[in-house]
Structures are given as C-alpha cells and as structure tokens.
Amino acid sequence: MDAVQDRTFEPKIVGFLCNWCTYAGADLAGVSRLQYPANVRVIRVMCSAAVDPVFVMKALLGGADGVFVGGCHLGDCHYTRGNYFTRRRVAMVKKLLEVIGLEPERLELEWISASEGARFAEAMRDFTQKIKALGPNPVKERKVS
C-alpha cells in the first residue's frame, strides 16, 4: 500500500520535550491557540539528556512512526550542558537506525525555547508531514509473536 496515497494514515509520534524549554514552548503554542497536528503524544522529561536512547528505540520498535526530541538551545540548558549530550546520543541513534534498516528521519531533534510557541507548532507540522511522506513504520509489518 502506497503510504503517500493512503489518506487515512495518521502517524503516531512520540515527543520527548524538555521541561524547561520545549515543553514550555508547547504550552505557549497551546495558550496562543496555534493549530498543529494532534499526532504527537508529548512526554515531559526534565532534560532532553534524560531521554535514554533506549526510550527512543522502545518507541520506534514498539510501532511509533516517529520520535521527536525537543531541548533548549545550546548554551541555554537548565543543567548547563545536557543538550550537548543529547545531540551526541541522537547522532548515535540515527546511525543505529540506518544500520538496522529504519529511516533515520524518523527521529528528529530540535532546539525550541519557551518563547518559541509558533516555532513549536511549525516543527510539529513539518515533522508530521515528513513522517506522512515516509509512511508507516515498517516494524509494524512484521507479526509480533
């Protein structure tokens, strides 16, 4: 089935948002009544560096179509350097996805601050669009015993 043609495909996206920036950004998008796709399921974490790569892989192998990680801009991290670690981990997981045969584009990292509500809404729109174009997660094709 061609996923792009499949109008009914609504991707499931797991979003790990950092408590201090991106989650507040999402909050601002909400109170500003900005429209963005409801495909993202938000999980608030204290820092983007608290997102263990295992959580990302658990989501993707469990059938999520995309994973979004949002953190503070570099230098703005509440814990000083957390997002530098996140960047390295995301780079690692992207390589891993490539090696095992999943599209690395299914994982996205963005720096979104608490004042960037509009940018959060836009990032959600773009990412959902990207995942829609990629189609459903191929892991789901395989029967899980």
């Binding site: 192998l61 891993l96 899980v144 015993s145």
Partner: peptide
C-alpha cells in the same frame, strides 16, 4: 517472559556498547 524477546533486547545492548 516473551520468547523470542522483543527487538529492543538486542537494540538496547547495541546502544550501550555499540560506540
């Protein structure tokens, strides 16, 4: 108690020592 274990069993270890 799932057998075979889910793929995360392998990927989790890969994430830990792959680098």
């Amino acid at each position: 108690e799932a057998l075979p274990p889910e793929a995360l069993f392998h990927v989790g270890r890969l994430l830990h020592v792959g680098d």
